[in-house]
Amino acid sequence: MNTLTPKRLTLYLLLAPAILWLLLLIILPHVGMGMISFRERIGPGEFAGSLKQYRTFFEEPLYWNTFVRTAVMSLIATIMALVMAFPVAWTIAKVAKGRLKALMLAATLLPFWASELVRTLGWLILLRGSGVIPQFLAFIGVTDQPVELLYHDATILVGLIYSSLLFMLVPLINALETLDDSLIEAAYDLGGNRLNILRKIIIPHAAPGIAAGSIMVFMLTLGNYLTPVVLGGKSSMWFTEQIYTQFITRFNWEQGAAFAFLLLGLSSVLVWLGLKITGQRFADAMRRT
């Protein structure tokens, strides 16, 4: 029926590795993890299907609180990154020209290409009790003694926002650059004030970029491990840390798998909501970033 023409053969040769990749490294591991999460250890090497892991999650306030806390802090970090990045993206896209613009773009890219470890080390040196900022504050007399700036929620937020600014800036700049200046000029000539122009012209035009940036930042923040653990210390209470603890430290795979699925679910739901609200397709949003 189906003779194997060279063209079909090529297709199969290209399809096979792609399918192997997705099947062996993405689909099957996640299906396997789903199955692990729905079982319970009843004896050495003996398991039974159960919802115990998910029940534990809802019944144990620590887990539940960590989950909600991670989500809320990620949301705050996303919003703050958006608010902080927007004026800068505007300046790069619309105001700066020539060499200054290139320089600013390079400066935004630089922290991204430095490893996450390097960035976190930088914040550690800046913020710890004996570090640069506490000593400086004590030196100029704002505080009597150098104060410990690590291990606060605000510290975690600073680190998270810092790591995510690039992912916010790039889609925002791309979106703003396609906005025609004459539209703003026309609105201004017709008597629109700044707030109106921002609300009715700039933000609607930049909406795809805002959505793409926010989704990317939210996902990255939610899944971040290093920044909360190092900058937050023992008080970080980040959900990825729980997953790590269950899997690697306690070797409780069933619980860890359930946690991983909950985080994946939360991330997917919020990404889906974000796309729905802004009326975008997943593939388009991903290509933007």
Binding site: I26, I27, W253, L263, A283
Partner: peptide, 22 residues
């Protein structure tokens, strides 16, 4: 095409854990 994009939206920790378990 959609499946190929999925790895970008899975948090790195979960990607690692699931492959480890599998």
């Amino acid at each position: 095409t959609t499946l190929m994009l999925v790895p970008l939206v899975i948090p790195g920790v979960i990607l690692g854990i699931s492959i480890l378990a599998f």
